[in-house]
Amino acid sequence: MLDRIAARQRDGHGVDAISRALRGEGVEPALLAAALTQTGLRAKARAKFGEIAADLLFTRAALEQATRERVADLHAERFRAAGCRSVADLGCGIGAESLALLRAGIAPLPVELDPLTAVFAQHNLAVAAGRLGAAIPGVRVGDAEQLGAEDADGVFLDPARRTAGHSDTRRVASPDDYSPSLRFAFALAERRPTGVKLGPGLDRDLIPDRAEAQWVSVDGDLVETGLWFGATARPGIRRAALVLRGAAAHELTADADAQDAPVEALGSYLYEPDGAVIRARLIGALAQRLDAGMVSGGIAYLTGDRLVETPFASAFRVVEELPAREKDLRRALAARGIGTLEIKKRGADADPAALRRRLKLRGDASATLFLTRAAGRHVALLAERC
């Protein structure tokens, strides 16, 4: 059924037309609905999985939580560099990490708690193994904490941080409810090379001292916190911000959190650090590279008088300071003919979407507005992207 739908799409037919035609041919409605849903998920999955997505199977929830192919390949490379020939993928979902391990020449030992997701993972691994000429890994179904890592050389865990289900899931409130649990994951990390993928907003108090913590952003989107232990962790590195932009990769590393740079008077340029740099607390290290200072204590904007190109921050030229009071700000923007306004805020109590509506913008010009604090006071800074 999926092949029939794909063939009609290649012939230029839309989803509605395909649905009507197949219903007219007597296709069972439940099967047709499932196939059309799967077709939509395959199209969405291309952004994460590339062209192989056209042959894989997905659930909505598992696709949302799946690691992007490029990031999963970097995970697998850590295990390859650590000399691991087999890696237990505990909580494998639809198999994104196991697919990357296969591509790296490592035997994955996947475990998945949800039976349907496990069936889909088995299908996906069979597709990839067939393309690579590799043995097809078997997906074990059950609780990873009960089944364990067997005799794998290394372990990767992507604990479920949402309620069970295949769609409309919600985040669990406590790390104690992750599946597998962090306690289980960190115990494994005592014995063998281990990687743990967690959300980018992870409470930093949960990070063990012995772990290398790496925050990863992809094209400006902060996607994960990776905790690495044993041979998968790099010597002397405890904090890392990995910034992937297009085909390029850039990384800022340190042996600990960096001390914030001193506060400086507002300069000609404003820098907005990438989310990975902010979460890794490496803003001070970035400030040194940029010869910049903090706009205000505890606020993640940097300022300087020299424009320095960097992949770790977006740079803006400060055009002028506008009145911070909303009524006066609206008049100032109107006088400058600004009809398109990007609003950024840190240290200011404002809802950018609601404020944009109240400003009643008109005009052909566009700009960026920063609402923040500088020299202990609220400021509104009109700027343009460099």
Score class of each variant (00 low, 15 high):
Ala43Lys: 11
Ala35Met: 07
Glu150Leu: 13
Asp257His: 13
Phe316Leu: 05
Pro262Ala: 15
Tyr269Ile: 04
Ile338Thr: 15
Leu206His: 05
Ile207Ser: 03
Arg191Trp: 03
Glu272Ala: 09
Ser86Asp: 11
Leu202Ala: 02
Ser86Val: 07
Asp16Gln: 08
Leu113Glu: 08
Ala107Phe: 06
Phe316Met: 07
Leu99Arg: 10
Asp3Leu: 13
Val172Cys: 03
Pro108Cys: 05
Val119Ser: 10
Leu341His: 13
Gln9Ala: 12
Asp205Lys: 12
Leu322Arg: 13
Pro311Asp: 05
Arg70Gly: 04
Ile237His: 02
Asp209Leu: 08
Ala261Gly: 07
Ile283Gly: 01
Ala285Gly: 06
Ala160Ile: 08
Arg191Ile: 02
Glu272Gln: 11
Arg346Thr: 12
Arg238Val: 08
Ala45Lys: 12
Ala247Phe: 05
Leu31Ala: 15
Pro235Glu: 11
Gln259Lys: 14
Asp11Ile: 06
Asp89Thr: 09
Ala254Phe: 08
Asp219Asn: 15
Arg331Gln: 13
Glu264Ser: 12
Leu157Gly: 01
Gly50Leu: 10
Lys327Tyr: 12
Gln288Tyr: 04
Pro273Asp: 04
Lys48Gln: 09
Gly284Leu: 10
Leu290Ala: 04
Thr37Ile: 02
Glu145Lys: 03
Leu56Val: 10
Ala118Asn: 10
Gly142Tyr: 08
Gln146Ala: 14
Pro29His: 08
Tyr269Asn: 06
Lys48Gly: 08
Glu224Met: 14
Leu90Arg: 00
Ala332Asn: 14
Val319His: 11
Thr67Glu: 01
Asp151Phe: 09
Leu329Ser: 15
Asn124Met: 13
Arg357Leu: 11
Val295Cys: 14
Leu125Gln: 11
Ala240Trp: 01
Arg306Ala: 14
Asp158Trp: 05
Asp158Lys: 09
Phe370Cys: 09
Pro323Phe: 12
Ala332Ser: 14
Ile283Asp: 02
Pro137Arg: 10
Gly165Lys: 11
Leu266Val: 15
Leu282His: 09
Ala375Ile: 02
Thr67Gly: 02
Ala324Gln: 11
Ser217Ile: 04
Ala324Phe: 15
Pro235Phe: 10
Gly105Ser: 05
Gly220Asn: 10
Val319Asn: 05
Arg191Met: 04
Glu51Asp: 11
Ala164Gly: 06
Gly246Tyr: 04
Asp219Met: 09
Ile207Lys: 04
Leu381His: 02
Ala54Phe: 05
Arg234Ile: 00
Asp151His: 09
Ala66Val: 01
Glu145Trp: 01
